[in-house]
Design a protein around this nucleic acid. Sequence first.
DNA 1: GCAGAAGTTGAGGAATCCCCTCCACTTAGT
DNA 2: ACTAAGTGGAGGGGATTCCTCAACTTCTGC
Lengths: 213, 213
Amino acid sequence: MALRRDAQRNRERILSAAHEVFAARGFAATLDDVAHHAGVGVGTVYRRFPTKEELIEAVFTDRLEDLVTLAEEALAAPSAWEGLTGFLRTSARWHAADRGLRDAALSMDEQHFTTASEQIVPLLEQIMERAHAEGTLRADAGFHDFPIIMAMVTELAQHSADCRPGLYERYLELVIDGLRARPDNGSLGHAPTDTDIRAVMRQCVPPLRPSRT
Amino acid sequence: MALRRDAQRNRERILSAAHEVFAARGFAATLDDVAHHAGVGVGTVYRRFPTKEELIEAVFTDRLEDLVTLAEEALAAPSAWEGLTGFLRTSARWHAADRGLRDAALSMDEQHFTTASEQIVPLLEQIMERAHAEGTLRADAGFHDFPIIMAMVTELAQHSADCRPGLYERYLELVIDGLRARPDNGSLGHAPTDTDIRAVMRQCVPPLRPSRT
DNA sequence: GCAGAAGTTGAGGAATCCCCTCCACTTAGT
DNA sequence: ACTAAGTGGAGGGGATTCCTCAACTTCTGC
């Protein structure tokens, strides 16, 4: 059953407003905000998207897939190092510019996470392997470091978004220089496990709903 | 006018409980928590420390001064590089182990900030200068990077505190390797200004009180 | 036009959270 | 034993946010 024409138009307004509002304030933004931004009442938002989660999914599914495409492109870069650092820089820029995207990437539930992982983890592994083979990436860094580095740098990006949007880039460059293979690098110790990564990711995003402690 | 003996004992219990509770959960911990932990009623806490701020100040003033001492010791290290990295590692360890200390360091009001800055900024400058002179620190890193690096790394430390307390060390080492002077380092771009640093610091700690937006 | 289905609205219900107050009650100390 | 000091903890007050609902408006097919 197709939507009435005005309802369809409102649906699109809501999606577009949600994208804007979430981009600026992350999932902490309220649906009242989204409604106001879209020029409709809250009730309309809830009629179209019964829960906040469903609205979020409708807004960010595509954007998350763009990240997979980005990883694929990184593998096709002229050199492994360019591919690796290009992926870090571009995905950091995307996450910095769209807090909602970051929150979406970090707060996926188990099901979404599994699906996404199956797509992107093999790509990250290949990106890292290729750089190891090239000899440009330090041997003790692995693909497990990707999500943690991203979480760390983009968190800084959020904190400085209002005063100086590009500040995070400086510290990403610092980390990138730390990732280069060097004869006299220090040692990094144990890499994070998948469990660690999941736990850190969860900690990086505030719960959608008042926490049940 | 001296406190009654039981009141004195309770005051100490409160301070010690506050330290524990803030160390574990940061300033987000409630005074009800502190009271419960101390085995006293909330009323007792408020009788001794009229506001949350005053309790925090009573608990953390000394610990903040320890950081100044640490910076002084860093200047006396055998090499500039050892001093610099030792200071980063130790202060990161302190902040990682005591979330309250981190919150205190990041959320000082203007008055405390000014006082503290006057003490520690000259030390950080000297630590950095010494390392520049030694030739071990990359030329485009400055003392302004200290607080940002600390904020970034200790935030990760908080996020992984429950699952893997030492995880942050790996990424601190990565950053430290990125700080080394190298012929082929990338360039870092603009250093943060004092204003940027203050803004990022504020963003790193949730407001003590419900925000007035 | 018009009937009725579909859609809209926004105040407010319900749940949480947390700082802090208040006052009936207890205890230390002379 | 008396009094001043101290204590406890329910609850006031203010904030936040998700979501509902009943009265109202607009679209659409006939």
